[in-house]
Design a protein around this nucleic acid. Structure first.
Lengths: 194, 194
DNA sequence: CCATTCTATTGACATCTGTTCAATAGGCAA
DNA sequence: TTGCCTATTGAACAGATGTCAATAGAATGG
């Protein structure tokens, strides 16, 4: 069986990563055989190994690309009021999950099942969290306890956006954003009053 | 290699489930070979299939037992003020994660990577969430949006307890509980004022 | 237009792991 | 002690991962 299509390494790599995002969004690593990936991509199994080394490295590349896209696309604007910039970043987060749902789910699923993928995920979310402490808003005071709360708030945001995506629950995008944005200050205030 | 040890089915099942909890806490499904499970348990591979059918079903049984233990051990007390009962249930949750850390992580990891395990996890957390709406406290008014917020609050609680377990971040158990308990009403109030 | 070179791509093979099932042996009852 | 029940085993099978020398697009130079 010939019918080879010869692409540049960049094109081929992109094609395979895109495919990986689609596949890993709905199935775990061991549910996706190399055969399936190869057949779906119209290539031989060997080629996948040529580009990514092994199956795990392929998965890792897929998750890493999703994480990098998340961090890049949620970068807060350079100018504007601190609170405005935070809100813009948060809006970008919601829209990213909305637009890249499959890739996002792929990343989350991966993070839970493998330490290496978890590290990639943690690094991405650590970067998002750090932005909050660099934002110069009055209700954010850096401390270990505040870091813990921000982590929790991020987990809450993720869960709510994913649940909202699955079932809007009667909330508009703006109402959802209102809850997420409003919750951060009130949660951090619990530290002082607790 | 003889040296068989013949147990009752219940004993053997318990032994294997306990072992599964330990193993799946630190490694994903495909990282744990049947050989490892069998060797660790001192049995043959075949016996695991005799008891659980296949590898996935074994994993499923491990997660299901953890989920059932979680729901059982966080049951709120029958008597007392509604708010007190909620707080007692939440305290039981924190203590459960603290005491059964490996089993809890095993459940969370599994839930993210497989639809069947996810369903078990969702059912357990749905049960915990429903308790909140049945608790008869004034700040909880049932609605799709409120359900969404409770889901988010649960995700936040989980993340914070796990992070706190890994690194106390200077918070005592009581301070952590204070933040978790205090956050639920203020989050739900965001719905009215938003 | 042809030949050459480079390398993207293949396919067969070795190895490992999940799964099945007939055979084996531990322990209780008669 | 004998015999039966069934917990347990181990070998055989199926399917997937990972390896590597061989193959064939396509650009380049004459």
């Amino acid at each position: 069986m010939s019918q080879r299509t010869r692409l540049t390494p960049e094109q081929r790599r992109e094609q395979l990563l895109d495919l990986g995002v689609r596949l890993f969004a709905n199935h775990s690593l061991d549910e996706i055989s190399i055969d399936v990936v190869a057949r779906e991509a119209g290539i031989s199994r060997g080629l996948l190994y040529h580009y990514f080394g092994d199956k795990m490295a392929f998965r890792e590349a897929v998750v890493r690309r999703a994480a990098e896209a998340l961090v890049a696309q949620t970068a807060p604007p350079e100018t504007g009021e601190p609170v405005e910039r935070l809100l813009a970043s948060m809006t970008a987060y919601v829209d990213f999950v909305d637009a890249n749902y499959e890739g996002y789910v792929s990343m989350v699923r991966g993070a839970a099942s493998d330490p290496v993928l978890r590290a990639i995920y943690d690094e991405a979310f650590g970067a998002l969290g750090t932005r909050i402490f660099e934002a110069d808003v009055d209700f954010v005071v850096d401390s270990p306890a505040a870091r813990l709360i921000v982590r929790g708030w991020q987990a809450m945001s993720e869960e709510m956006v994913l649940s909202w995506k699955a079932d809007a629950a009667g909330l508009s995008r703006e109402e959802l954003l209102g809850v997420l944005a409003g919750s951060l200050p009130v949660l951090l205030e619990l530290l002082g009053s607790g």
